[in-house]
Design a protein around this nucleic acid. Structure first.
Length: 548
RNA sequence: GCGCCCGUAGCUCAGCGGAUCAGAGUAUUGGCCUCCGAAGCCAAGGGUCGUGGGUUCGAAUCCCGCCGGGCGCGCCA
């Protein structure tokens, strides 16, 4: 395969830069995309950066770089001669045929276009959602599902071997509360009655489970049976919601298994053996402050049971032992404090796990507005918008696109009324429409698209056509940086830009023109646009419809 | 009080390992279908990038203070 033009030019400039400034052995020139098209396809500020250490004016440095690389640049056959502009920018323009050629490349690579091959492929885990089976999935889980699934897909597209994992906290105090709540409902009590469990779940789904339990012949005094029944029912409901959302997991890891297979006990023994624990007021503590925590944490409570911290650590040990050297946990910012704690626990075990293990992507919680007021998201309150509600209101594609379109750290206002009223104007339709439009042109045309990868492209000379081709060429870089930053929202923004460029082109030019060479080249361009949109949408779990 | 995150156009948000960074969508206003789908296109108005300093040739972007908002700070998960 022909070497990527950008990579090649970066290599040439890096070599020249090191020649000029030999003291900077680590120097690496990177090309960036200027905002304004008149500044070229790519640009670098390397001359401005080098000026000081070289002791010459930036413009002079730029001129030297231009002159010394002129021959190599021409030799690529892919670039116009570099230009020195302003205070010392080096601007680069791709030769027209280089821009055109991306169309052939997209069509030849098809669904693989934009992907990269990591060498070596890294065994990677993305853990996300991990909702307690104590209630239906809410909007925050939806954000996590959209984010986590897209991050996993991005890493796969970079050539890594990715496992999607869901951790079920199916034991512990919250599950006990769940069982007590269902039992209370089964006994006919309601959340406001005296004798309702103090930390009970008040949602209506509790009553539904209690009814189903009773209908199945269950007895209200068998708490263990109630627990099992409730957890099973809620897991089934969560699974159905995830399926409706188009998110699948490779592994469901049960917290309870960490107890039954002895991993929790083993973790405690190892922590004690590390010498980092101490007894205080009847409890066993770990000196997490030795690892940056602001206070030490309880490992074993005075009643002999363990805090959630222990299974969490034991769980992450299994990730390491299962061979996952890169692990990304997607969680809400309300779980922020667990980062330091889990890492501290892993460090105390002294297993050779890096101190930054695992990685975290923390997302701010979603604030749901309805009728101008905030709807509180709380399982206990029982009044919150579920993921299923959103899917029913605006559709799966729109919810996924919307939830993945914002940086994880952004605080997210989901205005239900707005989302519903604008469901026809959601950005996802704008992108999908571009895809459907291409399909429509092709059905109008009626020809065989299979040979378009070899189509001559010389007639693609219009500004819009070249800009569109340039945009197609961006995909590999967009995916690379989105994966590196664990920031899938970049895909959504890229797709919107690409669709916009296509719609603009489509309105300005006719595809099915008389002249055969022009028509074929334009069809090839459109086919490439369709392919790239499909590839991008696939990564964020959104469908690419042929008709809308 | 301490820690983390966030303050960019009326609204929802990109841009934040400096430079060619004042952007998109939406809303508002005005144009474009005898012609491949108008869920579209073209154009206009709209922001001292929360605020005050600092570093620099250059700061929305980096550093510090302050103001405002969110989330944590359990022998809950």
């Amino acid at each position: 395969m022909v070497r990527d033009p950008k990579t090649e030019l970066e290599r040439i400039l890096t070599e020249a830069g090191r020649h000029i400034a030999p003291q900077l052995a680590e120097l690496a020139v990177t090309l960036e995309k200027p905002r304004r098209p008149e500044h070229g396809d790519f640009s670098t500020t390397i001359a401005l950066q080098l000026a000081k250490s070289v002791g010459k004016a930036p413009r002079e440095v730029a001129e030297t770089l231009r002159a010394t690389t002129a021959r190599a640049v021409a030799g690529t056959g892919q670039w116009e001669p570099l230009e020195v502009v302003g205070p010392g920018f080096l601007n680069a323009r791709l030769a027209r045929h280089t821009k055109q050629s991306v169309v052939s490349r997209v069509l030849a690579e098809g669904a693989r276009y934009g992907r990269a091959a990591a060498t070596p492929a890294q065994k990677t885990m993305v853990e996300f959602v991990s909702a307690n089976p104590t209630g239906p999935l809410h909007v925050g889980h939806g954000r996590q599902a959209a984010l986590g699934d897209a991050i996993a897909a991005l890493l796969e597209a970079q050539g890594h071997e990715v496992t999607r994992e869901f951790y079920y906290n199916d034991s512990g105090a919250q599950i006990h509360n769940l069982a007590l709540s269902v039992q209370a409902r089964a006994q006919g009590r309601t959340p406001d009655d005296p004798g309702w469990p103090s930390d009970g779940y008040r949602g209506e789904y509790i009553e539904e489970i209690a009814r189903a339990y009773t209908a199945a012949g269950g007895h209200s005094d068998d708490l263990e049976a109630i627990r099992k029944f409730s957890v099973t029912a809620l897991r089934r409901e969560q699974d159905a919601d995830l399926q409706a959302f188009g998110v699948r997991f490779d592994v469901y890891y049960l917290e309870s298994s960490l107890y039954t297979d002895g991993r929790v006990e083993a973790a405690v023994r190892a922590l004690v053996a590390s010498g980092k624990t101490y007894e205080h007021e009847g409890a066993l503590w770990l000196r997490t402050t030795d690892y940056g925590d602001d206070k030490d944490r309880v490992v074993r409570k005075s009643d002999g049971s363990y805090t959630y911290f222990v299974p969490d650590v034991a769980y992450h040990v299994t990730k390491w032992e299962r061979g996952f050297r890169k692990v990304i946990n997607v969680q809400g910012t309300d779980h922020h404090s667990t980062i330091t704690r889990v890492r501290a626990g892993l460090q105390a075990l002294n297993l050779g796990i890096p101190s930054g293990y695992p990685d975290y992507v923390l997302h701010n919680l979603v604030k749901v507005m309805r009728g101008g007021v905030e709807v509180k998201i709380s399982k206990r309150a029982g009044s919150y918008v579920t993921l299923r509600d959103l899917i029913d209101w605006v559709g799966r594609d729109a919810v996924r696109f919307f939830l993945v379109s914002r940086r994880a750290e952004s605080e997210f206002v989901f205005d239900v009324d707005l989302a519903r009223s604008q469901s026809e104007e959601n950005p996802v339709y704008y992108v999908q429409y571009a895809h459907a439009r291409v399909c429509s042109v092709f059905s109008q045309w009626g020809g065989d698209a299979s040979g378009l990868a070899q189509a001559p492209l010389a007639s693609l000379t219009g500004d819009r056509e070249l800009a569109l081709a340039g945009r197609l060429a961006d995909l590999p870089d967009v995916l690379r940086s989105a994966a590196a930053e664990l920031a899938p929202h970049a895909i959504a923004f890229y797709l919107r830009d690409l669709a916009g460029e296509f719609h603009s082109y489509y309105n300005a030019e006719r595809i099915l023109v008389e002249d055969q060479a022009t028509r074929t080249a334009r069809l090839a361009l459109c086919a490439a646009v369709r392919q790239v949109i499909a590839n991008g949408l696939a990564l964020i779990g959104v469908s690419a419809p042929e008709r809308m």
